[in-house]
């Protein structure tokens, strides 16, 4: 097989992934739509306080554990699997919704495999780490976002999140194949370093986790608005199918707590590499400036969340602003701003 055949296969793989993941997105949307409760089950208690009831059973002194150790059951361990009954509300899904989410999950796995294949085939074509230009960054970013979602899904039921992960992933993949597409090629000398594999890989993974954090943060803000005075219609929308605002906020925080040290590592590794390649570990290159802005913004988010008297909503807005800087750093700085990180290939 010639090298350009590998590249062509990679392209086919990515195109197929786009189709398959679009199917998965539809599946997750159907899942959300079909599980919207009917009028008669929308009393507040049934939907929003159900998880809290479970919590209280664990804490409630009255519900002291029975001698036979009932409390060591699944509810205590708190690990929800992806399939089976809905662990957020404790009620089984309606049949069509369950089927839709099952199909969506399988398509997500298949689409992710195709994206991974696209990345690997490209690496085989060029015999180097496949993170050398804008197209490859986008591809790897989409891949890591999907992998992070899948990995997290094995620990808890995240079917409700599927649509909100696949939508940004599809947007990035679509942009990758249309506006950022770059033919497979070799690297310029400054990129020929094992630090490429370290720095850029971790950077891309971090952006994936930030993406999950931003999706959860945005959902939290919406859910919070609905809970504190949304209309009856809003309360009956698909948002009622999602966890409570408090739970969403905690999940968003968890994602950011993972991503922030990763970003710190990205910046440190980048500085070590910058010293190797450019002679100085920090040059205030535009990419470095924006990486610094992102770091400080998320540091502010973590501080805001820990500051008494600061609302969680406002803290989340800071995190979303940080994600805005992440997007700017990728989509704008790479393409339009002159600097030493000009590797977009565009």
């Amino acid at each position: 097989m010639t090298e350009s055949t590998w590249a062509a296969l990679s392209d086919y793989s990515v195109f197929s992934a786009l189709l398959v993941l679009s199917g998965a997105l539809v599946g997750y949307v159907v899942h959300l739509a079909r599980t919207v409760p009917r009028e008669d089950t929308t009393s507040d208690g049934a939907m929003t306080s159900a998880p809290r009831v479970t919590q209280q059973q664990l804490v409630d002194p009255a519900g002291a554990p029975t001698p036979d150790g009932e409390c060591s059951g699944p509810a205590l361990v708190g690990v929800a699997t992806t399939h089976g009954p809905d662990h957020e509300t404790g009620r089984p899904d309606p049949g069509p919704a369950r089927r839709a989410s099952g199909i969506a999950w399988m398509l997500t796995l298949l689409g992710t495999a195709l994206v991974v294949a696209g990345v690997v085939l490209r690496a085989l074509d060029v015999h180097r780490w496949p993170l050398g230009n804008m197209y490859e960054f986008a591809l790897a970013g989409a891949m890591f976002t999907l992998l992070a979602y899948i990995a997290w899904s094995t620990r808890r039921d995240l079917r409700w999140l599927g649509a909100f992960v696949l939508a940004p992933v599809l947007a990035v993949l679509g942009s990758a194949v249309t506006i950022w597409y770059t033919e497979a090629s070799q690297l310029m000398p400054s990129l020929r370093s094992y630090w490429l594999a370290v720095h850029v890989t971790v950077a891309t993974m971090t952006v994936a986790v930030f993406t999950l954090g931003a999706a959860l943060g945005a959902l939290y803000l919406i859910q919070d608005r609905i809970e504190t005075g949304g209309s009856a219609r809003a309360r009956r929308s698909f948002m009622s199918r999602l966890p409570t605002a408090q739970a969403l906020e905690r999940l968003a925080y968890a994602a950011h707590v993972v991503a922030f040290p990763m970003w710190t590592f990205t910046v440190i590794a980048g500085a070590i590499w910058a010293r190797q390649a450019w002679g100085s570990y920090w040059n205030w290159d535009p990419k470095e400036v924006w990486s610094f802005v992102i770091w400080v913004a998320y540091a502010a988010y973590l501080h805001a969340r820990a500051t008494t008297g600061w609302k969680r909503q406002n803290a989340t807005w800071i995190a979303l602003a940080g994600f805005g800087a992440v997007i700017f750093n990728f989509a704008v700085v790479n393409v339009f701003i002159v600097g030493m990180h000009s590797y977009s290939g565009l």
Partner: peptide, 18 residues
């Protein structure tokens, strides 16, 4: 609160350089 304010200021102040 002041630390937080300064962090936010630092974020904004770094932007023109990029």
């Amino acid at each position: 609160r002041t630390a937080l304010l300064l962090l936010l200021l630092l974020t904004v102040a770094a932007i023109p350089g990029g």
